[in-house]
Structures are given as C-alpha cells and as structure tokens.
Design a protein around this nucleic acid. Sequence first.
DNA 1: AATCGTTTTGACAATCATTCTCGATAACGT
DNA 2: ACGTTATCGAGAATGATTGTCAAAACGATT
Lengths: 134, 134
Amino acid sequence: MKRNTWQREAVRTALSENENFVSAQALHGALKQSGSSIGLATVYRALADLADEGEADSLQQEGEALYRACTPGSHHHHLICRNCGLTVEIEATAVEDWARQVAAQHGFTRAEHVVDVFGLCEACSRLQADPSSS
Amino acid sequence: MKRNTWQREAVRTALSENENFVSAQALHGALKQSGSSIGLATVYRALADLADEGEADSLQQEGEALYRACTPGSHHHHLICRNCGLTVEIEATAVEDWARQVAAQHGFTRAEHVVDVFGLCEACSRLQADPSSS
DNA sequence: AATCGTTTTGACAATCATTCTCGATAACGT
DNA sequence: ACGTTATCGAGAATGATTGTCAAAACGATT
C-alpha cells in the first residue's frame, strides 16, 4: 500500500514552487536549505513516483533528469528556454495525431512520443542581441 | 586542423553497419570483438564528433546516449521500437512548422526541437500479443 | 624519407547522477 | 496502542561519461 509521508509532500510542494524544470539534486539542495532533513535518495524516489503518477513531467538534459510539476491529467508538451529555463506548457493536438498516424503507417503500435521545443525566450533573446544591457 | 585516423573511420564504419541506435559502450564492444584495439574514450570522442558534424543522430534512453548513422544533410526524426530497437527515419515537415510557429507565438527565437516516436514495431507487437510464438 | 609542431590516442583515474543496501523509523489498519 | 510493513536516510555501489597526460600518429614541410 502507498503511504503518505511528509517527505513525499515536501517534494511535491517544492516542485510546485518551481516554475521551471529542476534536477533531483537541485531540489534536494533547496529542501535542505530550507531546513528539511530529507535524504537525497528519497527525493529521487519521490520524483520518480510523481512522474509515474502523472503529477510531474520529466525530461533529460545533458545527461540528467529534470522534473517539473504539471497540470495533472492533461497531455501536453513544453517550450523551454535554453538559457534561463523558462518553461511554457503547450498543447499539441496536431502533433499527437501526427505521431499516432506515422506510427500506424509503419505498423507500430503502442505509440508514445517525446516532443519538446527549445529556444531562447523573449528576455534571453534580447540579452543575447544586446549583451551590454545585462 | 582535423585529422583522419583509422579510429575515427572505424567508428564511422561500425556505426553505419548498425541499422539501429547503439550505445558507445556497445559499439566499443563490437569493435573490440572484431579485433580492433580502439580505446573506449576514443569511441566516445568519435561519436560526439560525428554527432556534432551531423553524420550521426543521438538520443538519450534510460540514462545513456545512443547513436545512429543518419542520412547527412537531411533533418529528420525517428520512429523507434521500444522492444527491439528497430528504427525508421521519418519526415515531419508538419511538426517542424508547428514547432517554429509555437515558439514564435511565445516570443521564443532560435527554436530547435526534440521529436521522437516510440512504439512497438509490427514484429514485436505480434510477439507481445502471442508470446508463445517467440 | 626524415623532421617538427600539433592533434589524437589509450589506459586509467576521476566525476557525477542515480540506484542499491540495510538497519532504523514511521504509517496505517486493526 | 500494536504489529505489519512500506518508507526513510546515510553511505556504498554502480555505471556511463569525461579528464589527464605521456606516447603515438598525422600531415605539412624540408
């Protein structure tokens, strides 16, 4: 049976306080900073669980897993700033259909897909164009 | 200046002999099997170079990087069998456009995207439906 | 073909994220 | 409150990838 522990709740809370994708390590660091005594392994476990249960989205960047609280129950993708990490949830009905269709065309079943868009957000685009204003 | 060594050539060749995505470790193992004395670090370096130069595609799966020779100069995505690794290159013009458009809508510039579709290929679908025939 | 400056290699150590281990702890049903 | 048993925490273990550095290989030039 699954139990409710303050640790899991702490991770859930810490996650939803972050607008953007965070690594398990970073989240653990933040929790420790704010006085929690939670263990690193526990953060990893809690994040994996949350991702399984659909309460968090995850993606791989530079060899590490990043997590983010997500609006549960809705399938969506992300538009992520490569520089500052700003993340926007995006709907992609058209892409869902396309993926399913392409898979079917090639005889594939059980299609899932990974779709993420990276770029420079408006602010970071400006910074890059005019570095003096940083 | 970039030099041509038999090691790099060996990696390029080994890659193109594999229809599917392979890990650096696996590729190194295969090369050793066939009598090569190439070092593991060299395989990692060669693969990173090939990916940079657009001669190979790469993706992350279960915490490890997988590589695959790709038709150079063409932007494409992949349809990958979750079970046997069979890979099909797919065109995704519609998705390209969608990605660019979504990024622009949110003020993002320099949009890039990660789009991969995973599923079970025809053969593996059958196996799963009727495991007795394996 | 021999030489020289530079790049690349390979063996192994180092790193780093993540997972495992296991005794201790705490949740939940009774 | 009690006993089960899932979960925790600390640190060890794992496993992929990268760094180090002396030795070897490359390629342009004699």
